[in-house]
Nucleic acid binder design. Structure first.
Lengths: 208, 208
DNA sequence: CACTGCCAAACGACCGTTCGTTTGGAGGCC
DNA sequence: GGCCTCCAAACGAACGGTCGTTTGGCAGTG
């Protein structure tokens, strides 16, 4: 009965399977999907190659689990930002901070989500693409609100602004290394600040 | 004699080898390095697997050629922006526009440079890392100049600002598809505009 | 006794690389 | 022109090894 109420959200993965997905996330992010063999994965878990197939259907299914889980985490945070009762800049800030927090707190899964999803077969990739599109739509909606409310410049191209925000968040995995001076939240705040206010001094108008 | 004057710059690759590197760039960017077999590459060139080894040393050497060539193109453009006689915002704009132009005009090589370089062996990867560091240093220098000259906000963190600019440029490969409405130059200009001026209206001061 | 979780072995396919040989010209010499 | 030499380019078979996946059995637990 409670299964019916939570049909898709609570992925009914057995504990052992969750361990395997976690190990796969780490290996896929380090070595890439094609660079990771089932032997690597089995070694990391201390068992034989073939034994994995008692828990999973295929290597690709494993990739999908990692990628899909990553997508869901971003979506969840995005939805929270979208539904805030606040002006656009605050919601945008929340989205970007949430994005970077998610990317860093689950660095392996986020890396796989961003880098390796394209190796999914067409059908599975399409399901991930839908979630990406939905996320981007949320971001655009916030930016459009900001323009309509007169808080953002009226001449900004919504699509480009959204891409810039996503670029800031999506490239994090490429340079972030644990143990840095700043935590995920502070990193997100600083990027949001820069994106909102820009590099130029407000008084400087010498630029074209 | 003239060989001695240009010892390293003019990569002395035979024409056939250049074809192979080009095909490798395309395949590596599409399927990933580990997802591309020598059979794939041979098929794309219309010859046998083993015949490739008359022209190249190894698969990894091929990856290095693609990645290194990509790095050199970015460096060249960065140097041009750094040496401009102009205020910081103009030089920053030039760097970002050049970056995106390079990324799009050589989309395959740029994708491989950004995504697949980490699969190089330690020694080769280090040589690429040096070029990346040099490029980032150029960008930081421009930003520092902008602050020193009073054109950029004095409170911007140089490292973060540089990362934001690089994020904008480096994520391009992930969404750009040929045949869009805007060309590389216009895309770079718009990103630069957004990064310099920010999203907020100048009059809006309600945001913390 | 049934069930889980894993092992050990095997499957055919494909991996990157090596190697001896063949091919089609280009250039020098009579 | 006819002949010989040389060479770059590619072939096609083979190397040892690894790939992802399947299968049958066995020990341990409820």
């Amino acid at each position: 009965m409670s299964q019916l109420l939570a049909p898709q959200t609570a992925t009914d993965h057995t504990p052992r399977r969750r361990e395997i997905i976690g190990a796969a996330a780490r290996l896929f992010s380090e070595r890439g999907y094609h660079g990771t063999s089932m032997q690597h994965l089995a070694d990391a878990l201390g068992l034989q190659r073939g034994s994995l197939y008692a828990h999973i259907g295929s290597k690709e299914e494993l990739l999908f689990d990692v990628v899909n889980e990553g997508a869901d985490r971003f979506l969840e945070r995005g939805r929270a930002a979208l539904e805030m009762q606040a002006i656009a800049s605050v919601r945008l800030r929340r989205l970007l901070v949430g994005h970077i927090e998610t990317a860093i707190e689950h660095l392996d899964a986020a890396t796989v989500f961003l880098n390796e999803w394209r190796y999914l077969s067409e059908e599975l990739r399409a399901r991930v693409q839908d979630k990406r599109d939905a996320y981007e739509a949320m971001l655009k909606e916030i930016i459009e609100d900001g323009i309509a409310q007169g808080q953002f410049r009226p001449d900004v191209n919504v699509r480009f602004a959204a891409r810039l925000v996503l670029s800031a968040g999506n490239w994090t995995y490429a340079w972030y290394r644990p143990g840095g001076e700043l935590g995920p939240t502070e990193i997100g705040q600083r990027f949001a600040e820069l994106l909102l206010k820009g590099l130029l001094q407000e008084t400087a108008e010498g630029d074209r």
